[in-house]
Structure formats: C-alpha cells, structure tokens
Design a protein around this nucleic acid. Structure first.
Lengths: 197, 197
DNA sequence: CCTACCGATCGGTAGG
DNA sequence: CCTACCGATCGGTAGG
C-alpha cells in the first residue's frame, strides 16, 4: 500500500517536472505561472505543492539533472585514451544527442538557469564553470599537440557550446534533415574549424 | 524654446531605452519591472510614461533597431561582387563587431524578442526569417560554387548565428583577449569549418 | 486533492 | 515630474 502510494506520487512528480520543462521552454521561467503549470498537469494550482516545494525547486531540479549528466560525461571522456580532438568530437556529439532527445530540459538549463535562487544559483554557476574549464583543458591539450589550430581555448569553448546549445529551433531542423545528418553537419563545421590542417 | 524641450525629451527617451536594454539583459524582460527601470533612470515609475508608451514598446524599439541594422547590412553584402564565402565572412565579422559594441541590445533582441506583443512579434519573426533566408541563400551559393563544404545550408546558418549571438559572456572574453584577436579566433573556427578544402 | 484566500507586486492611469 | 491609487495576477498557505 505504502509502496504503491509512493510510486504514484513519484510519477506525478515526474509529470509535473516534465510539464514544467516544456512550459519554461515555451514561455520562459518568469513568465510561466503555477496556474499555467497546474492547468497542464490537470489539477488546481495549490495541489502542485503536495508534490513539489516551490516553483524555484522545479527549475533547480531541471538544471541540476542536466548539469549532472555533463559532469558524468566529461569525467568519462577525460579517462579515455585518445587524441584531444577526438575527445572534443565525442563531447560535441553528446551535446547534439542531448539536444535531440531532451530538448526542453537542455534549453531550460542553458537559458533559464539565471533565475535560480541563491544556494542553487552559485552551485550551478560553479558546475558550469567547472565543466567549461575541463573542456577548455582538452582543447588546450589539442593545441599543444598541434591537432587543433593555435587559438584562444576559452573563446573556442564558448563558440562550440553556444553554437549547439542555444539553438531554439531543433524541432524545425530535426524535421527537415535526419538527426544523423544534423549531427554530421554540425560536427563537420565545428571540428573542421578547429582542426589544424 | 520648443526646440530645446524636444531635444531634452529625446535624450531622456534615449536614456530610458539604454537603461532598459541593460536591465532586460541583466534580469530578462519579464523579470524587469518598470520600478526597476525608473530607479535606474532616477525618476518615479509613472514618470516614465511621459517618454514612452509601455514596457512592451521598449522591447519593440530595441528589437527593431537591431533588426533594421542587419537588414541594411545583408542588402549591402548581397550587392558586393565577391565569392560567397567572403560574403559569409563579412557578415560574421559584422555580427562580432555588433556584439562587441552593442552587447546589451544584441543580447536582448536575440533572446528576449519572444516577449514582444503581437503586431510586433509577427513582424520581428518575419524579419528574422527573412534575414536567415537570405543568409542561407549565400551559403547555398557557396556550396554550389564548391567554396563551401556540401552540407545543409539551413543548419549551417543556425550554427553560425547561434555561435556568435548567444554568447552571454562577451564582457569576460573581451577582457581576456583583445577584440581583434577575438574576432580572428571566431572567424577562423567558423569559416574554416565551412570552407571546402 | 479542492476552495478560499493572503500579502506582495505588477503595468499603468488620474489628476495636479 | 510626483502622489495616490487601480485592477489583475503572482507564489504560496490554511484548513478540510
């Protein structure tokens, strides 16, 4: 009995988080009201608070789920023995796949994170900084090994990450070209842009 | 007398628009209140309405100023006789310079335009679509001429534009590397990524 | 899970 | 340009 109840509550909570991701993507975090969210979930606004603590908590959950995935991924890539430029390619492909498969969550964590409240805001900022720093180190390694052109590694990372993660028309392009073709297009432009010929 | 009054009003109006750009960039359009803006300008909130019609109008002015600049620029570039890939390069350099010199306005028009209200929202969407379409045509021309790699021109445009216009740390990078170096870094990555070797 | 309702804040107006 | 103030809407609570 308690077991079933708990399962029901968890799945309802997940529905709420999923709908929140969609709404925050569509309208933005600040412009989304808890009444909007309640309507999508099919309850009255106060009922949401039986499953979550606050609007703020929803944003925090979305952002830290995404942040966690990238922390795990970069740790994995760092450990593989391969040329730095191939590590960069692996990370880019991962970003593209995440955009294709979890578009709303990626979009929200990429563009709405600034509305996080302060213990979480600082944590998330630190997590992003850490990720970018490690990504930058991989690029710098590639430059030192002459696999990558001589350029400012910090700038390169910002260009690469923004090129992929801030596109707000995935649905449109994914319907025009296949997701495989999309991935190859992006990797071609960005990796060949970095590669030292 | 009337002349002086008019000049004063216009400059006050420009101060309001400038401060609004900064605030919309810092906090987002929806999260910025007219009281926030009034405080920056140094008046009480209702006094703002002697210079502007609505909060919405401020966003519209910022977005259409930026949109207009790009409409003029692409018309200019289309008329020059030069290889398509050099046209692309010209446009990229223009985007970078605009980001360096008018960061707040570019950021707001790039990321907060979706909060425009409906006659303006549709107009702005159309303007963006038109710009991207013409940019895509230049890339397609480059592909046909074998100056640019064979890839989906629509995807390429989105990658290029997002790579530059959605970076939210210009102030940080511009202080680390010179703006000339920054421009060369970005152009190197993106143009070499497109170029057919 | 709902109804009833709260204090705060919003964009904007009236009137001087 | 200000004071006074409006109706609407917000996130969230109490109580059942």
């Amino acid at each position: 009995m308690a077991r079933i109840k708990s399962t029901e509550n968890n799945s309802k909570r997940e529905v709420i988080i999923k709908e929140a991701s969609k709404l925050f993507k569509e309208k933005g975090f600040t412009a989304t009201s808890m009444r909007d969210l309640a309507e999508r979930v099919g309850v009255e606004a106060p009922s949401l608070y039986n499953h979550i603590q606050s609007k703020s908590e929803l944003l925090k959950i979305i952002c830290s789920n995404v942040g966690e995935k990238f922390a795990v991924k970069i740790a994995e890539v760092e450990q593989i023995e391969m040329p730095a430029i191939e590590k960069v390619e692996k990370l880019l492909r991962f970003h593209i796949q995440e955009m294709i498969n979890y578009y709303e969550e990626e979009y929200v964590s990429g563009r709405e994170w600034r509305y996080l409240k302060d213990p979480y805001l600082s944590e998330y900022r630190e997590q992003r900084r850490n990720y970018r720093k490690r990504f930058t180190a991989i690029i710098q390694e590639g430059i030192d090994q002459k696999e990558i052109k001589k350029l400012d590694a910090n700038t390169a990372v910002l260009i690469l990450l923004n090129a992929i993660t801030s596109i707000d028309q995935w649905h449109r392009i994914v319907h025009k070209v296949s997701s495989k073709e999309l991935e190859e297009n992006i990797v071609t432009i960005l990796i060949e842009g970095l590669r030292n010929n």
